[in-house]
Simulated scan of single mutants.
Amino acid sequence: MGRHFEVRQASMQKTAAAKSKIYSRYGKELYLVAKAGIPDPEMNPALKRKIAEAKSNQVPAHVIDNAIKKAIGGTGEDYKEARYEGFGPADSTLIIDCLTDNANRTIADIRAAFNKAHAKLASSGAVLFMYDQLGIFVFQFDNGDILLEKMMEKDVDVIDIEKDGEYIELSVDPNHFHNAREVLDELLGEEIEYLMNEVRWVPQTESTLNEEDKATFEKLLSL
Rank of each mutant, 00 (worst) to 15 (best):
M1L: 12
G2W: 04
G2P: 01
R8N: 09
S20M: 13
I22T: 15
S24K: 13
R25V: 02
K28S: 08
K35V: 02
A36F: 01
G37V: 04
I38H: 10
P39L: 13
D40Y: 11
M43L: 15
L47K: 05
E53C: 05
V59W: 12
V63S: 05
T75V: 13
D78V: 04
Y79R: 04
Y84T: 00
A90E: 15
T93E: 11
I96S: 02
D101V: 04
A103P: 00
R105P: 00
T106F: 05
I107Q: 06
I107H: 03
I107K: 09
I110T: 00
R111Y: 06
R111A: 15
A112R: 14
N115S: 08
H118Y: 03
K120M: 09
V127P: 00
D132R: 07
L134S: 12
G144Q: 07
I146Y: 12
L148P: 00
E153S: 06
V158C: 11
V158K: 06
E162R: 13
K163Y: 00
Y167A: 07
I168D: 01
L170G: 06
E191Q: 08
E191F: 01
Y194H: 04
L195V: 06
W201V: 01
P203L: 15
T205Q: 15
S207F: 07
S207Y: 07
E218H: 03
L220P: 00
S222R: 11
